[in-house]
Design a protein around this nucleic acid. Structure first.
Lengths: 197, 197
DNA sequence: TAACCCATGTAACCTGTTACATGATTAA
DNA sequence: TTAATCATGTAACAGGTTACATGGGTTA
């Protein structure tokens, strides 16, 4: 399970409340994880019970009190242990691909519309990530250790959105004029032989 | 929920048993969905009870009997309806990104090792997809309607693996020699203005 | 003779989603 | 005065994982 690890990772970067975590997962930190507030509160209770995090009650006036969560030494040690363990890559699992796989049973216009909507959603995400990159990571070589790693996860988000956008564009072209679409996927451009086993 | 839709989509392409479905989701159809056999059997029972699919009992000698599932008219209609409904893009959610986000608390070597393993896993997947592309989709313009859509989902899988590999390579370079890594992410190369709202 | 393939399932558990619930403050 | 923001939670349900269970046939 990785939700607990994602929460620990977020709390290491910056201690915060459950409410704040939900917003962070929904916003900038969303390029590496997301979760609903119900899931987060449940997990925070569990992590606190297990001693991986501690809560500090903050009394506020004019707004509800909150609990500020921070990671404990135990939590940090467990996270470090987990980082070193082997990991499998996650499968894609996107509704659009299921829709496309059986796309021949739907009107062509419906499918093209889905592709267009998908493209626009990914474009909006990409623009959001690029704005963060420009505001907070404009000089990558000068970043602190911690920020350098955050920058890399942001770059992963950016790469993903770009890949989706590229694919959506190709798919729409292919569906409207298949004869003009060339198959450029056999190339080995992306293969680094120095990384082969 | 999309597992049921993924099953329906797979059964439209080719009626098969639960065992076969598990293998398909684990193999070539894995670029758009995956599921364990337990999940598949549970879902097949539900879909059959709801009349979306029908089972035909196949008696075999020398090996266990099996149930061959096919989609019904009801199931197909429901799938068509679902295809037309709006869809959100799925978040990434990959363990490696969580590990990287808090990568500064782990030894540098551990992180580089994780990146390398990830790269190799994606490379293996890419090679598998490319083999399918060459064997079954070598002339995309000549494909049938149904196969054309399957080709597009395969291309999505290929694009994803390429994006991951590119990112892994960049991340490793950045961690070993950050000064030489240029920030090439501000470009708008991937943006098609004709698709803006 | 051990391991794997075929083929199906149950049970328990954990993760994720949806709906419901409260209640003050602030901005349109 | 309506809606949004801040802030936390419970309950029920659906989706996904892990472990357990069976049993014949094939390959090393």
């Amino acid at each position: 399970m990785a939700l607990s690890h994602a929460i620990l990772a977020a709390l290491i970067e910056c201690p915060c409340s459950g409410y704040d975590l939900a917003k962070r997962f929904d916003g900038s930190v969303g390029f590496f994880w997301n979760a609903s507030h119900q899931q987060i509160y449940r997990e925070l209770s569990r992590l606190e019970a297990e001693g991986q995090i501690t809560a500090e009650k903050i009394e506020q006036d004019g707004r509800p009190n909150k609990k500020l969560y921070s990671i404990t030494a135990t939590g940090k040690a467990l996270l470090q242990e987990w980082i070193a363990q082997p990991a499998e890559v996650s499968p894609v699992k996107d509704d659009l691909l299921v829709k496309l796989f059986s796309g021949h049973i739907a009107p062509r216009e419906t499918i093209l519309q889905k592709l267009k909507e998908h493209y626009q959603q990914h474009r909006a995400k990409l623009e959001g990530y690029q704005a963060i990159a420009q505001q907070h990571f404009s000089d990558p070589a000068q970043l602190s250790e911690a920020r350098r790693f955050q920058f890399l996860t942001l770059r992963a988000g950016i790469r993903h959105e770009m890949a989706w956008m590229t694919w959506c564009g190709e798919a729409m072209s292919f569906l409207t004029e298949p004869a003009e679409t060339e198959n450029t996927y056999q190339s080995s451009l992306y293969v680094r032989d120095d990384l082969a086993e």
